[in-house]
Simulated scan of single mutants.
Amino acid sequence: MRITYFATITAGLMMLTTGCGDKTADSTTDTNLSASNTEVTMDGPPPATADVHNHPSEGPHHGTLVELGNEEFHAEVIHDDKSVTVYILDSSAKKAVPIDASDLTINLLHDGTPEQFKLAASPDASDPAGKSSRFTLADAELVGHIDDDASAPKLSVTINGTPYRGEIHHDHDHDHGHDH
């Protein structure tokens, strides 16, 4: 008799916890909701999704950003009417990263002919000895082609023994009062 009583109680408990009928594990029923659940109201639309590119759209010097690798690093390209300067930045595109390269290269097409420009290391005052986060070249021809989409400019640099290459896409829609 005790075994029958125990089996009846066990079966009853199983029915309370698992429910009855042919329900799937994914379905939500009123038996699964408790009286303590409250209704949630929102005062507006749901929040926007997070941007996976959580870095600025321009560099700290208001230049064009170039992604290097899988956003391991960035380069910032700025220029005036006489020279081009490239800064090597971290993955957030906010902090300078001094590297031990003596130069970096910008490759582009001019009238269908490939051209190559070497920008020499020009260390910032805060860069440690033997390293540079800034690279420059005074070359009017490079300046004349760097913003031309048809020239398809690409930057190549080696950082910590790993070669990186990135396309330079100039944002023609921004205007921050800086020289082009």
Rank of each mutant, 00 (worst) to 15 (best):
residue 149 D to E: 08
residue 90 D to R: 09
residue 122 S to W: 14
residue 140 A to F: 13
residue 120 A to G: 08
residue 143 V to G: 03
residue 96 A to F: 09
residue 69 G to A: 14
residue 59 G to K: 09
residue 141 E to H: 02
residue 114 P to N: 08
residue 148 D to Y: 03
residue 127 D to R: 00
residue 71 E to I: 08
residue 65 L to R: 02
residue 108 L to Y: 02
residue 48 A to E: 08
residue 109 L to I: 07
residue 48 A to C: 10
residue 104 L to E: 06
residue 125 A to T: 14
residue 50 A to N: 13
residue 44 G to D: 11
residue 81 D to K: 15
residue 119 L to E: 00
residue 101 A to N: 02
residue 66 V to A: 00
residue 92 S to E: 13
residue 51 D to G: 01
residue 128 P to H: 03
residue 79 H to Y: 14
residue 96 A to N: 07
residue 67 E to V: 10
residue 120 A to F: 12
residue 54 N to C: 11
residue 74 H to I: 13
residue 50 A to P: 03
residue 143 V to C: 11
residue 130 G to E: 12
residue 131 K to G: 02
residue 120 A to S: 15
residue 121 A to T: 11
residue 114 P to A: 15
residue 106 I to W: 06
residue 95 K to V: 10
residue 60 P to Y: 10
residue 143 V to A: 02
residue 142 L to V: 06
residue 142 L to F: 12
residue 50 A to I: 11
residue 120 A to W: 05
residue 145 H to C: 04
residue 127 D to F: 02
residue 144 G to P: 00
residue 104 L to I: 15
residue 61 H to R: 14
residue 113 T to S: 09
residue 84 V to R: 00
residue 52 V to R: 09
residue 111 D to G: 05
residue 127 D to N: 05
residue 63 G to L: 12
residue 51 D to L: 02
residue 45 P to V: 13
residue 120 A to R: 12
residue 51 D to I: 06
residue 66 V to F: 01
residue 58 E to R: 04
residue 144 G to D: 04
residue 44 G to I: 11
residue 78 I to N: 00
residue 71 E to H: 12
residue 52 V to I: 08
residue 119 L to C: 01
residue 104 L to A: 07
residue 52 V to L: 06
residue 52 V to C: 05
residue 42 M to L: 12
residue 91 S to W: 02
residue 135 F to I: 12
residue 85 T to D: 00
residue 88 I to N: 03
residue 70 N to S: 15
residue 55 H to V: 04
residue 123 P to R: 14
residue 145 H to I: 05
residue 133 S to F: 09
residue 51 D to A: 11
residue 80 D to T: 15
residue 112 G to D: 13
residue 88 I to Y: 07
residue 130 G to T: 02
residue 141 E to Y: 08
residue 112 G to N: 10
residue 59 G to W: 06
residue 65 L to F: 00
residue 79 H to S: 13
residue 43 D to I: 09
residue 121 A to V: 08
residue 116 Q to C: 04
residue 137 L to H: 01
residue 124 D to Q: 08
residue 94 K to C: 04
residue 108 L to T: 00
residue 110 H to N: 15
residue 83 S to E: 13
residue 76 E to N: 02
residue 99 I to K: 10
residue 103 D to W: 02
residue 82 K to F: 13
residue 97 V to T: 15
residue 114 P to T: 12
residue 82 K to C: 11
residue 92 S to I: 14
residue 112 G to F: 12
residue 90 D to Y: 11
residue 143 V to F: 10
residue 41 T to S: 11
residue 67 E to Y: 05
residue 129 A to L: 07
residue 99 I to H: 00
residue 87 Y to V: 02
residue 98 P to K: 03
residue 122 S to V: 10
residue 58 E to Y: 10
residue 145 H to Y: 10
residue 112 G to P: 03
residue 76 E to I: 01
residue 132 S to R: 03
residue 97 V to A: 05
residue 114 P to D: 12
residue 96 A to V: 08
residue 46 P to A: 15
residue 51 D to Q: 04
residue 77 V to T: 01
residue 82 K to N: 10
residue 65 L to H: 00
residue 46 P to K: 04
residue 75 A to V: 11
residue 145 H to K: 03
residue 53 H to F: 11
residue 47 P to T: 10
residue 88 I to A: 03
residue 58 E to D: 04
residue 91 S to K: 08
